[in-house]
Amino acid sequence: MPLGKKLLGYLSGGLGAAALATSAFASFQTHRLTESKGTVTTLQGSLDRADKAFATVVLVANERAEALKRRDGIIRSQSDSIDALDRAAQADRSSYLAGIRKADAGAKAHEARADELIQMPTPAPADRCEAARALILQEMRNVR
């Protein structure tokens, strides 16, 4: 057999083996791709469910954040109201104490005037009505 035919036989035999190997490899890859497609579909479904769960968690977290903001606003409003009531109570207390001091000063002035009246010598007329009348007249003259 000439060398060319021998070489052609080797080549055709080698090409046949390579074609067989390529066909087997392609069949194996097709099988793997089919399996992978199922796995990808399963993974895609899992990913979609995970995305929905994440979106739900984000939504719940945002709702809770809004609820916390509303609660903080209510607490702030109540605290401001309590502070305003406390300031009003302090102002009322200050006004009340000032009134007491003013009343006390007035009472002391009246007490001093009463002491002056008690210290005054009173004439002792025989008629008590006359003595009362004289005291009233004297008081009317001393009115400030």
Score class of each variant (00 low, 15 high):
4 G>L: 13
4 G>K: 14
8 L>W: 06
9 G>K: 13
10 Y>H: 12
10 Y>A: 08
13 G>D: 14
13 G>A: 08
16 G>N: 08
17 A>W: 06
17 A>V: 04
18 A>V: 05
19 A>G: 02
19 A>W: 04
20 L>V: 07
21 A>F: 02
24 A>H: 04
26 A>K: 09
27 S>K: 04
28 F>G: 10
28 F>C: 11
29 Q>S: 02
35 E>Y: 01
37 K>A: 08
37 K>R: 14
37 K>C: 00
37 K>T: 09
38 G>A: 14
40 V>A: 12
41 T>H: 09
43 L>A: 13
43 L>S: 09
45 G>C: 02
47 L>T: 07
51 D>S: 03
51 D>P: 01
51 D>N: 15
52 K>C: 02
55 A>P: 03
55 A>D: 15
56 T>R: 10
58 V>P: 04
61 A>L: 05
61 A>H: 07
61 A>T: 07
61 A>E: 11
62 N>R: 08
63 E>H: 01
64 R>W: 00
72 D>G: 00
76 R>Y: 00
81 S>C: 00
82 I>S: 11
85 L>N: 14
86 D>P: 01
86 D>V: 02
88 A>G: 00
90 Q>I: 03
92 D>Q: 12
93 R>W: 01
94 S>V: 03
94 S>E: 14
95 S>L: 08
96 Y>N: 14
98 A>L: 06
98 A>H: 06
102 K>A: 13
106 G>E: 14
107 A>D: 05
108 K>W: 10
109 A>M: 10
111 E>I: 07
117 L>F: 09
118 I>M: 06
119 Q>G: 09
119 Q>T: 04
119 Q>C: 03
120 M>Q: 12
122 T>A: 11
123 P>R: 12
125 P>W: 11
126 A>C: 06
129 C>E: 15
130 E>V: 04
131 A>F: 04
132 A>W: 07
138 Q>S: 07
143 V>G: 04
143 V>K: 13
144 R>I: 00
